[in-house]
């Protein structure tokens, strides 16, 4: 279990990062603060009409998406590149760890760090919810936590993969931010752009929205995470229907929460495999 040794070392090291503490503190304040606001400002819960765990989690979702992705950059982008840059990789790889062990160990170690931050935030928020909300849905909260941890694993994986491609910490950070911008902002343009091209370089004459268009809208990690949570937390169809727009009949399988989980799994595996291959071939 060579990767576990790497992961353990990495967890001990990365958890002491001041940047991580700052970002976690910000998240805890935001998450708990939102719970307080949601419970005390009636306008925020107006559309639902009652204080509910689900209503709050819907609000929290956007904040959590941003927190996880930004924290993953901070935690993950330097994971391997930073070690190569500083020279601690010479210590790490002087011991009998394969480069695959290093990638896997970094993934697990750094995800564990982010998981602690997430769980601390959710725990503090839970205290607020129990104190201020008339009802609490432990199942919804648990589902939210589990899917969020999966999302954290995926995003850290993407950043560790980015980190595996270069020996410069600064470049890895720049790539990481670039990937973040690509996924979070340009990703939203993917579906319209493809639609534009498929439609003969125009948006004219579009009456119905095809299924693939809806799918392209939930193909980025963040969108897949949000769709999966919408699916598992809601009544099972609402989220997909919102995303899919005016779809007739049953929700196609590729818009379900399970499909989004599969999309997340691909986002976990593919970048890591590509990053590993580059790392494995590199001269340190």
């Amino acid at each position: 279990m060579s990767w576990a040794v790497v992961a353990r070392k990495d967890f001990r090291d990365a958890r002491l990062s001041k940047a991580l503490w700052a970002i976690t503190a910000a998240f805890v304040l935001l998450s708990a603060g939102m719970a307080v606001l949601y419970a005390t400002v009636p306008e925020l819960s107006q559309d639902i009409g009652e204080l509910s765990t689900l209503g709050y989690l819907t609000l929290l979702l956007a904040v959590m998406t941003l927190f996880v992705s930004v924290a993953a950059i901070v935690i993950g982008a330097g994971a391997i590149a930073g070690e190569r840059d500083r020279g601690s990789s010479k210590i790490l790889l002087g011991f009998p760890h394969s480069r695959a062990d290093v990638v896997l160990g970094k993934l697990i170690g750094r995800t564990a760090v982010l998981a602690v931050a997430i769980l601390v935030g959710l725990a503090v928020t839970l205290a607020v919810i129990l104190a201020l909300f008339p009802t609490f849905s432990p199942v919804d909260y648990a589902i939210f936590a589990v899917v969020t941890l999966l999302f954290a694993l995926v995003y850290v994986g993407i950043m560790v993969a980015v980190s595996a491609t270069t020996g410069s910490g600064g470049r890895a950070m720049a790539f990481g931010v670039g990937v973040f911008v690509l996924l979070e902002f340009l990703g939203d343009l993917l579906a319209p752009a493809v639609m534009f091209v498929v439609n003969g370089f125009s948006f004219g004459g579009l009456v119905t929205v095809p299924g693939w268009y809806a799918f392209l809208n939930i193909v980025t990690p963040s969108a897949a995470y949000q769709n999966a949570l919408g699916w598992f937390l809601g009544d099972g169809t609402a989220a997909a229907l919102t995303l899919g727009g005016i779809l007739d009949g049953a929700v196609p399988f590729y818009l379900t929460g399970w499909a989004s989980i599969a999309v997340l799994a691909l986002w976990l595996v593919v970048p890591l495999v590509l990053g590993y291959r580059r790392f494995a071939a590199a001269d340190l």
Partner: peptide, 25 residues
């Protein structure tokens, strides 16, 4: 191995470094 141009893990103690080395071996 005692490499050249290495960098240690600044946030880990000497004991933790040794624990890593021993576990690795």
């Amino acid at each position: 191995v005692l490499p050249d141009g290495y960098h240690l893990y600044d946030r880990l103690t000497a004991r933790q470094h040794l624990e890593f080395a021993i576990a690795s071996k």
